[in-house]
Simulated assay, not measured.
Amino acid sequence: MYAVLPGLVVFLPAFDQIYPMLAMLVIFAWVRATEGSAIQAVMLGALVFVVTMMAWNLLALGGFAVLHAVHLLRRERFAKAAWLRLAMIASIASGVAIGLHAVLYLLTGYDAPASFVRALATQRAIALPDRTWALCAGLDPLYFLLAAGLPLLPLLAWSLRDAREWSFVSRSGPALAWLGVATILLIDVSGLLRAETARVWLFLQPFVVAPAALALSRVGRAQRATVFVLQWLILVVLVARVPFIEP
């Protein structure tokens, strides 16, 4: 599915393709940490450090962490042990990330907070007046889904409907798939990352690609081949006709 994902292919050569991989690692580390893995909590902190050295927009994955934490607390009836476990994970991860940045600052003088402030200023500078909240909230998901390829949409809907049958979410129920979609909607409504979502939101593509691919794995070879051919045709059309892929 990823090999013919328009949003990854049309922007080659670029560094954007690594962002979905980082996002998947962060999501994996967070979920495993909430299941009791202290090592994954440390890995989460290290990944946050790497992310903040590359692209600050990936910090928007914190929206998924918050939604997932609320789901876990509700599932465990807001027990004190659940609160303490989440607090411990947050403390370990943030401690590792801040510690690594402190070491980097002592060694090189790189000022991460100043970099973050500059990134926010740059974001405000490129937020053109005509990119209003209403316009972006309505059109940004369209460009995001266009970058995902249209055949993915019915697969995603099918997968969300039958999410209870997925083995990989059996311990958390169908919530992971739904929380992923909710994260996309949260970022859209918040207006945090406006416009150019075919590229800027690439790190959110795993939330739709993974469930769609799982749904695709449950059909026959002929149906899978049909989806891949349709995805390839859409990719060709985008490369040939859609102006937002121009340099």
Rank of each mutant, 00 (worst) to 15 (best):
P20A: 09
P13N: 10
W83V: 12
L185M: 05
V117C: 00
L185A: 12
L135A: 12
T132Q: 07
R77E: 15
L139Q: 13
F244T: 07
L104Q: 00
L139D: 11
A127Y: 11
T122V: 03
L104H: 01
F11G: 09
A163S: 15
L216M: 12
P154C: 08
Y110I: 02
V4I: 08
L179R: 02
A46S: 13
N57C: 10
P129G: 04
D16Y: 14
W30H: 04
M1I: 01
L12I: 14
I92W: 10
V189E: 08
F168T: 09
R85V: 08
R75A: 10
Q40P: 09
D162S: 06
L146D: 08
L156W: 03
V51K: 01
V236W: 13
F116E: 02
M54I: 15
G149S: 11
V229P: 05
L104C: 02
D111T: 08
L58R: 02
L84H: 13
A147R: 02
A23K: 09
M1E: 00
L84V: 11
A134Q: 13
A148I: 03
A14F: 10
V42M: 03
F244I: 14
A14S: 15
I184C: 04
R124W: 06
A225V: 03
L135E: 11
V31G: 05
I39Q: 07
S170K: 15
L22E: 05
L214E: 07
L106T: 08
E246F: 14
L73V: 01
A195W: 15
W178S: 06
D111Q: 06
F228C: 09
A210Y: 15
L192T: 11
V181S: 05
R85M: 12
A148Y: 03
V236A: 10
T132W: 11
A41W: 01
I245R: 13
R171T: 13
S172R: 14
V31I: 15
S159P: 01
D130P: 01
A119V: 05
L156R: 03
S172C: 12
D16N: 14
L214C: 11
Y143F: 15
L22D: 01
V4L: 13
T122W: 07
T52F: 05
F244A: 09
L86M: 15
L160A: 06
Q205R: 13
R77K: 13
I92S: 06
S159Y: 05
P247M: 12
V70A: 15
M24A: 09
R74P: 08
L12G: 10
T183S: 00
R161I: 07
F168C: 11
R74T: 12
V96K: 03
L72T: 07
M1V: 02
N57M: 13
V96N: 02
A157H: 08
F116K: 02
T52C: 07
W83C: 08
M88K: 14
G180N: 04
D188I: 13
V227E: 00
R75K: 09
A134H: 08
G36K: 02
M53L: 13
A38D: 12
M88Y: 10
H68S: 03
R241L: 14
E246Y: 15
R241P: 04
G99W: 00
M24W: 08
R241D: 07
L204D: 09
L153E: 03
I27D: 05
D188A: 14
